[in-house]
Amino acid sequence: MLTKRIVAALDIKEGRVVKGVQFENIQDAGDPVQLAKKYEKDGVDEIVFLDITASKEKRNILKNLVEEVAKELFIPFTVGGGLKTVEQMVEIIKCGADKVFINTAAVENPNLIKESSKIIGSSNVVVAIDAKKDVESEKYYVYTHGGSKKTDLEAVEWARKCQDLGAGELLVTSMNTDGVKKGYDLNLTKQIVDAVEIPVIASGGAGEVKDFIDVFQIGADAALAASIFHYGIYTTKDLKIQLKKVGINVRL
């Protein structure tokens, strides 16, 4: 039986792992290759690298890093952040990433989803959606450029469109809950899980075991966390033992 996945996220800036709170207050959290290896050993199911290095010139740092990790890691890893073209996505796959994700570029040019899925395979194209709830309408809107720019796209509609264009998976981050460790945004995650047929990775807000149980119970296929692993609050193994106890199917 297919298991629920625990995904460890590493925000990468100029070759180092960093972590912010609600997309701000960036702090150093270690060496990416070492951390990725450690998480693999702890039993994590997948690693995601989010490159938050702003400049294009520094893209080579990421490529070298992906190559280094590809040799060391025997679990899947997904890389994204700032990727704009099919060529850049193919480059990252050629460096050894298993899947790539796109965010802002997909919003600006939805056709990129279609084109890239033809070349690297639909299963390997992940669209990351950063969403925030609009206080008045209570609807979730998509944000781009690392959460700094609001768009007119409604998150659920956008999720459906990504699927129709060929995305293999969605990585859904709630900006309302990111880094706060008070639980995933169940409302947003459920709306999207119910709207699409492709797997959904929930992201933003993991703090305790209960948060993972909650998000898996509403149908998320995978749950992503960063802070709780970086700061050693839980290891994946501890977490999975707890999940298994309540009947959630995980790989142990």
Binding site: L2, K4, R5, D45, S123, G168, E197, I198, D221, A222
Partner: peptide, 10 residues
């Protein structure tokens, strides 16, 4: 079915 089939399976 939900496709792609992604993840760890027995």
């Amino acid at each position: 079915m939900k496709v792609p089939h992604i993840g760890w399976n027995s």
